[in-house]
């Protein structure tokens, strides 16, 4: 399992994927709050604005990390090698997922310039910053699990990317108040809209950005990852 994890993790750096991903992620995660979110003008010594955009940036970047996890193996036939080595399918799924997750974690770590800037200019609440990062990491795990499962469904990385993006988009939209308002204006009953919203990512993530770490929210993110990985395993089990 360790071998697969290491191969996968360093595999990102063997191809341009890692460098493209890291640079685009950093430019987007810093640039978007700066220019679209008026990060500077908000006069707030916190990373709220930075974190608010994270799930939206993830939408495009996490499918890019996850799309090749299994579809590439299927396409090149290396799946047949991997699954005839003495590694259980569950271990293989987990090892690949962890490698991708750690890679995204590394990308998050590289945004440390943001909190440092805020700390230089003001006096941020470090607990809130930490809970925001924890939330961002957990959202990444949930999205990556979904994208990993999507990638096991097809040998085509483009399909895998689009499928992953759609599934993650659905999770984001469900909890987005603009989407909820749209449903209400279409005469959907309020309890139904609330029910759907409880599946959304944003209502779970936003409190963490504000420094509130609820056990239920942690369970929500972890269970999405676990469910997706189990599904992933079932798909590959033949």
């Amino acid at each position: 399992m360790r071998a697969i994890f290491l191969r996968e993790f360093f595999g990102y750096f063997r191809t341009p994927v890692a460098w493209v991903f890291l640079s685009v992620f950093l430019i987007a995660s810093v640039g978007v709050p700066w220019f679209l979110g008026n990060f500077f003008e908000s006069n707030d010594a916190s990373l709220r604005i930075f974190f608010r955009f994270i799930p939206w940036i993830y939408l495009f970047l996490i499918p890019a990390v996850g799309m090749r996890l299994w579809s590439e193996e299927k396409k090149s036939g290396t799946l047949e090698l991997l699954l005839t080595y003495p590694v259980s399918l569950g271990q293989a799924v987990l090892a690949k997922f962890l490698a991708g997750w750690l890679f995204i974690g590394l990308a998050l770590l590289l945004t440390a310039g943001m909190p440092l800037t805020v700390a230089y200019l003001g006096d941020p609440d470090w607990g809130t910053v930490a809970s925001g990062y924890l939330g961002a990491f957990l959202v990444a795990g949930a999205f990556l699990g979904i994208c990993s499962a999507c990638s096991s469904l097809t040998a085509n990385s483009v399909i895998s990317f689009v499928l992953g993006l759609m599934c993650c988009l659905l999770l984001v939209l469900l909890g987005w108040n603009v989407f909820g308002d749209l449903l209400l204006s279409l005469n959907f009953p309020v309890p139904l809209v609330d029910f759907l919203a409880s599946f959304g990512v944003l209502p779970r993530f936003n409190p963490m950005v504000d420094g509130i770490v609820a056990f239920a929210d942690l369970v929500y993110f972890v269970s999405i990852s676990i469910f997706a990985l189990c599904f992933n395993r079932v798909v590959l089990h033949r």
Partner: peptide, 22 residues
């Protein structure tokens, strides 16, 4: 396997080390 699939982006020694690990 048929058609000998391999991880193309790795070098021979990296790949064999990976296989040995697995």
């Amino acid at each position: 396997p048929e058609t000998g699939p391999l991880y193309g982006e790795m070098t021979v020694v990296e790949f064999l080390r990976f296989v040995a690990g697995a």
